[in-house]
């Protein structure tokens, strides 16, 4: 398999490490002024840490170009055919090119 890194160009998959489904969102960090978190946060984390769809078809996945530019990438891949339809950098990759005013 070959993955077109948006920074480096097309590279063989040995340069990349697979993480998994890019869909689950990690629950946000919270303030712990009272010393404890909110109720229901364990369920949210249970979903995030353990529950995954077993997708047959198009799936967005995280891949790490560790044998290259060390970018985390979001790869749109068909799990049936291994066809890759898009590769994008993760949100914080290449952040220096983002305008300073965009900082939240």
């Amino acid at each position: 398999m070959r993955i077109a890194c948006p920074f480096c160009g097309e590279r063989e998959n040995g340069e990349f490490t697979y993480l998994g489904d890019a869909k689950p969102q990690r629950p946000a960090m919270v303030a712990l002024d009272a010393g404890v978190g909110a109720s229901g946060e364990q369920e949210a984390f249970y979903d995030y840490v353990y529950l995954r769809d077993n997708v047959a078809g198009e799936m967005s996945e995280y891949w790490y170009h560790g044998g290259g530019c060390r970018s985390w990438l979001v790869v749109q891949r068909n799990t049936m055919t291994h066809e890759i339809s898009s590769v994008k950098a993760a949100a914080g990759t290449g952040a220096a090119a983002v305008k300073a005013s965009a900082r939240s």
Binding site: G66, R70, A90, G92
Partner: peptide
């Protein structure tokens, strides 16, 4: 060393892009 570096890059690039 390697896995931690990869994980920290994940935190930086994926989980918390808002951090400089």
């Amino acid at each position: 060393a390697g896995p931690v570096m990869q994980y920290l890059e994940y935190c930086r690039q994926v989980l918390w892009p808002e951090l400089d």
